[in-house]
């Protein structure tokens, strides 16, 4: 299925980063899918345009890996929404991802702007 491949390629491109961004967003507390998308958009000051559809496969993947947990709750507007929360394993993974990310940024920075 050609359209499938196109979509999955896109997810694959984003995958590592998107997972990290989701975990990072959840560090501030449980949030539903839409809230996660908003937070990424807002905190990146609209630079990172995450196609919201790609959030859900990522959320399910993270849930399958045991990095996050899901729970149905009611929002302030009395709507049912599925909230996601970091697990202990997820917190550890986030820390690891973060330090890896920092090392990478540092290394790329050194290459781009040699001292």
């Amino acid at each position: 299925m050609a359209s499938d491949d196109r979509y999955q390629n896109r997810i694959k491109l984003l995958q590592g980063t998107l997972d990290m961004l989701i975990l990072r967003t959840l560090q501030w507390g449980p949030e539903h899918g839409h809230g996660i998308g908003l937070a990424i958009r807002n905190t990146s000051q609209d630079v990172l345009q995450v196609e919201h559809g790609s959030l859900y496969p990522a959320l399910h993947r993270l849930r399958k890996q045991g990095l996050i947990e899901a729970e149905w709750k009611t929002t302030e507007n009395k709507q049912r929404a599925r909230y996601y929360r970091l697990t202990g394993k997820g917190k550890k993974m986030l820390a690891a991802e973060e330090s890896r990310w920092n090392r990478m940024v540092e290394a790329i920075g050194r290459v781009m702007r040699p001292a």
Partner: peptide, 17 residues
């Protein structure tokens, strides 16, 4: 539009199951 392809997102998620 922001969400992208709903059916595709559903299918890809389902494949994960």
């Amino acid at each position: 539009r922001d969400f992208g392809n709903v059916t595709l997102a559903r299918e890809v998620t389902r494949d994960m199951w």
